[in-house]
């Protein structure tokens, strides 16, 4: 199929999709007039039943917990896929690094270290970022946030260390084996946390911990531990993915420098 035929085919199909979509939307409740019962029931009952003030987190890790487990395994699998695809082929391991380095220098692309101001500002930001990430994970059931967002923020911290020009420290903080183990443990923790509910004769992921006072950090039963597991899995996954990309891109270039 050549280029022009494909474009015309796309245009015809696009018009058809647009028409069908508009006619479908006209049957739906108009924008701003939500009338499904589920949202209202959840908004009314969650605070009483689960002692959690952020209903979205409650839906994620309690009412719809098994779905989130599925989502997290998608995340896990795509991280594993990336790691497998980008692992070093054995023929390239003994590539002649000297040749690469001279080639870089010849093109005027040797690596200058970032200025001292950038380094100080970036490394100074790492501490607050870690604290903020932990806060977002820990307060997931109270304010907007939770394991997913907090995990991403935590993953950003080692990346900042790399961006400050310190690949060595990045490798020390985010040791590849540790990160992979953390990734696996995060998902495993989620899986295991579902079991006590079954042992007590209920459903998978059923709450077994005391609910506590709503509005306090220690409330909501199982949600806080699941949140922490998710945070570990997400942050480890993102760091692992970035690590393999970095290793592929930078390894030879940085070897000559230090």
């Amino acid at each position: 199929m050549n280029r022009r035929v494909r474009r015309w085919f796309f245009l015809i199909c696009a018009c058809a999709i647009f028409g069908l979509f508009v006619s479908a939307v006209r049957q739906m409740p108009t924008f701003g007039h939500y009338r499904g019962p589920y949202g209202d029931i959840l908004n009314r009952e969650t605070v009483y039943e689960r002692h959690i003030t952020d209903v979205v987190t409650a839906v994620n890790f309690d009412w719809r917990g098994i779905d989130t487990l599925g989502e997290e395994s998608i995340l896990f699998l795509s991280v594993i896929g990336t790691l497998v695809l980008l692992r070093k082929p054995s023929s390239e391991v003994n590539d002649s690094h000297d040749e690469n380095d001279t080639a870089d220098k010849r093109k005027g692309r040797e690596i200058p270290l970032p200025s001292a101001a950038t380094r100080v500002a970036t490394l100074g930001l790492v501490g607050p970022l870690v604290v903020f990430g932990l806060y977002i994970v820990a307060h997931g059931h109270l304010t907007p946030g939770g394991g997913f967002q907090g995990g991403v923020i935590l993953a950003t911290a080692p990346l900042l260390v790399y961006l400050a020009g310190d690949l060595k420290s990045f490798k020390r903080i985010a040791n590849h084996e540790t990160v992979q183990i953390g990734e696996a443990l995060g998902l495993l923790g989620f899986l295991i946390l579902g079991l006590p509910g079954m042992i007590r004769g209920g459903a998978y992921l059923r709450n077994v911990l005391p609910l506590g006072t709503s509005g306090h950090v220690f409330s909501g039963g199982m949600i806080a531990p699941i949140n922490v597991c998710t945070g570990v899995a997400v942050s480890a996954g993102l760091v692992a993915v970035t690590y393999v990309f970095l290793e592929h891109t930078l390894e030879t270039r940085l070897r000559g420098r230090r």
Partner: peptide, 29 residues
């Protein structure tokens, strides 16, 4: 308040999307 169910669907999907994008990029590489 607005419907929390759709928000819960999206919130996980956005984070998962990032790793899926990484997978696709490694295919491209």
């Amino acid at each position: 308040a607005v419907d929390p169910v759709v928000q819960a669907l999206l919130l996980t999907d956005i984070v998962v999307e990032a790793t899926v994008v990484a997978l696709l990029l490694s295919f491209a590489v």
